[in-house]
């Protein structure tokens, strides 16, 4: 996903301006010109200058570079589905690992991901998800001695 430089510059300049306004609310050291705002303020100014250059450059090349251009993969629904599955899997883990438990969550997520990525090889997916989950469980819980959330399996796996 490629953006024209002007789009990047514009977004960054908005960020820099917001930072500049926000750091004005920070306190400063008694009898000193410097304080918690000094460093982020300096960074925001550098960011603003660089953004101005990007905006200028983006406008100059606007004919050859559209505001947003997606790669050729964007025409494939499968690529979009895989792309969506990455954050969905990550977020599902964050919400499900503690209540449901490490073992069922990992096994299920891996099964879904491998089945989708390998175009429906569910048998391979189920084997891999089982073996992987057990290996990771053993490494963390028994070698590194890191507790993993037991969830629904509390009392069975500690």
């Amino acid at each position: 996903m490629r953006f024209n430089d002007a789009v990047i510059g514009l977004s960054l300049s908005v960020l820099a301006i917001m930072v500049l306004f926000h750091v004005d609310t920070f306190p400063s050291l008694p009898l000193q010109d410097v304080g918690p705002a000094t460093f982020p303020r300096a960074l925001a100014w550098v960011l603003l200058i660089c953004s101005a250059y990007l905006i200028f450059n983006g406008i100059r090349t606007r004919k050859s570079k559209p505001a947003v251009s997606l790669g050729s993969w964007a025409y494939s629904p499968r690529a979009w589905r895989r792309l969506a599955l990455v954050p969905i899997a990550v977020l599902t883990y964050t919400f499900a690992a503690v209540p449901i438990g490490f073992i069922p969550t990992t096994m299920l997520l891996l099964f879904v991901l491998v089945t989708d990525f390998s175009n429906g090889r569910w048998f391979v997916a189920s084997m891999i998800s089982a073996v992987f989950t057990v290996v990771i469980y053993l490494v963390f819980a028994h070698i590194l001695l890191v507790p993993l959330p037991p969830g629904l399996l509390v009392g069975i796996f500690q």
Partner: peptide, 30 residues
């Protein structure tokens, strides 16, 4: 890679979460 990437993804998530048991770390990672 269709088998490897899901495993790598979950290793990242599990590893990041295990260090501080912090969901916030996973959001930072993502």
């Amino acid at each position: 890679p269709s088998l490897l990437f899901p495993m790598i993804l979950l290793t990242c998530v599990i590893g990041t979460f295990a260090v501080h048991n912090a969901v916030f770390d996973i959001w930072v990672m993502l």
